[in-house]
Design a protein around this nucleic acid. Structure first.
Length: 348
DNA sequence: AAATCGGGGTC
DNA sequence: GACCCAGATTT
C-alpha cells in the first residue's frame, strides 16, 4: 500500500528523508559532533543554552581540557569553574553544572535516560531531550528556538511563539516528524536548518530541503513568522568605576553568594562606594548591556589611603584564575589602554 | 504566565 | 538599536 498524501497534508517520511540528506551534506564541523561521549555532549548543550555556536567555540575546548571528565568537574574549586565560564553569561549554568557533576559521581554513572537526565540541576526539557537523543539514541524531540521557528513556518503557526499553547502544538509536531531511528541526527538537522537556512530574518528558502512542504512559504509569509509579542524596552544607567592600583595589585570587592546576578564575581569599586577615594584622572568610558539594562560606564584612576573595609587587593597576574565580570574586564582594558597612550604622549 | 539571568553577533 | 541565540529556574 502506497501512502497517498492529500494536498496540504504533512508528509513526515519525505521531510525526514530530505532533511537528513541535506544535513549529512551541509552540517558544520563542530567539536561536539566528533564523538558521542555523554559528558562532552552534555557540556556542549549547557554552553549552548541561549548562546550562539560562535560564542561557545573558544570556551568549549578550553573547558574540557581543564575539566576532562565528570570527576574533575565535581572536584574543581568553584572559583576555577567560574573563571573558566566568565564571559559566557548565565552563570547559574556553571554552578548547576557542578552540582549535577557531584550528583553524577554520587550516582556512580552518567544518567542514561530522559527522566534521569531531567533531574540534573540545569537540565530542562530541551537539554534532556538533546542529550538523550544525541548521546544515547533515544527518541525524544528537542524544542529550542531554532526548531520552534522552523516548525512555525513549516506549519504556518500564527500564534505567539512564546505562548505555552503554541509551544505545545509545535512540540507535538516535532514528535511526529522525529526520525525515531536516528533521533540525534534528526534533532541536530532541524536545529542546523534553523541556524543556517531558516533564519529569523530573510530565510534562505532557496537552500531549504523542505521548502516544498513549507506552508509559510506557500503563502508568502516566511518573513512574517514566527509571531512574537513585544518586549520591554531596555533601561539605561550610569556607572562610575575606579581603578585603584598599588604595587601590581588592583582593589576589588566580591559580590555575595546570594547576589541575584554574577554571584561571587569580583568587581571594581564604584565611585559611590568609596567617597573618600581621591580621583587622579579619567581613563575613558564605554557601554555594556546586561539583559535589559545598558550601562554607561566611566572609568577613573584613583588612590586610597588604606584598604577600605570589604575590599581586597588582587594581584594583576592572578586575575586569570578568578571570576571577573565582563564590565570590570572592559574597564581594566580601557585603563591599560589609556595608560599606554599617556605614556606615549609623555603625560604622567 | 511572567520575570530573571550575560553577553555578543548581526542586521 | 532591536533582535535573538541548541533555555532553566524562580516567582
Amino acid at each position: 500500500m502506497v501512502h497517498q498524501a492529500r494536498p496540504g497534508e504533512l508528509e513526515p517520511a519525505s521531510i525526514r528523508r530530505r532533511l537528513l540528506a541535506w544535513y549529512r551534506k551541509h552540517k558544520r564541523d563542530l567539536p561536539w559532533r566528533r564523538n558521542e561521549d555523554p559528558y562532552r555532549i552534555w557540556i556542549s548543550e549547557i554552553m549552548l543554552q541561549q548562546t550562539r555556536v560562535a560564542a561557545v567555540l573558544p570556551y568549549y575546548a578550553r573547558f574540557l581540557a581543564r575539566f576532562p571528565d565528570v570527576q574533575a568537574l565535581a572536584e574543581a574549586p568553584e572559583q576555577d569553574l567560574l573563571a573558566a565560564w566568565a564571559g559566557l553569561g548565565y552563570y547559574s549554568r556553571a554552578r548547576n553544572l557542578q552540582k549535577a557533576a557531584k550528583n553524577i559521581v554520587e550516582l556512580g554513572e552518567f544518567p542514561r535516560d530522559h527522566s534521569a537526565l531531567r533531574e540534573l540541576p540545569g537540565v530542562g526539557d530541551y537539554t534532556a531531550a538533546a542529550v538523550a537523543s544525541i548521546a544515547f539514541g533515544l527518541p525524544h524531540a528537542v524544542m529550542d528556538g531554532n526548531v520552534a521557528r522552523v516548525l512555525s513556518r513549516l506549519a504556518l503557526e500564527l500564534g505567539d511563539i512564546k505562548s505555552v499553547a503554541v509551544r505545545k502544538r509545535l512540540r507535538a509536531l516535532a514528535e511526529v516528524l522525529l526520525d525515531r531511528k536516528r533521533p540525534g541526527e534528526f534533532n541536530q538537522a532541524l536545529m542546523e536548518l534553523g541556524a543556517t537556512v531558516c533564519l529569523p530574518k530573510r530565510p534562505r528558502c532557496e537552500r531549504c530541503p523542505v521548502r516544498l512542504y513549507c506552508e509559510a512559504r506557500k503563502q508568502g509569509l516566511e518573513n512574517q513568522l514566527p509571531v512574537r509579542g513585544a518586549r520591554p524596552s531596555a533601561d539605561q544607567r550610569g556607572k562610575r568605576l575606579l581603578v585603584i592600583e598599588k604595587a601590581g595589585k588592583v582593589l576589588f570587592w566580591q559580590r555575595p553568594a546570594e547576589s541575584s546576578r554574577l554571584a561571587k564575581f569580583w568587581e571594581l569599586p564604584e565611585r559611590e562606594q568609596l567617597p573618600t577615594a581621591k580621583v587622579t584622572d579619567y581613563a575613558g568610558a564605554f557601554r555594556h548591556t546586561i539583559v535589559n539594562t545598558t550601562y554607561f560606564v566611566e572609568v577613573c584612576r584613583a588612590i586610597v589611603g588604606s584598604r577600605p573595609n570589604g575590599f581586597r587587593w588582587l594581584a594583576k597576574s592572578s586575575l586569570e584564575g578568578v571570576p571577573v565580570s565582563t564590565i570590570a574586564k572592559k574597564a581594566l582594558a580601557l585603563h591599560a589602554q589609556s595608560e599606554a597612550v599617556s605614556r606615549r604622549s609623555g603625560v604622567p
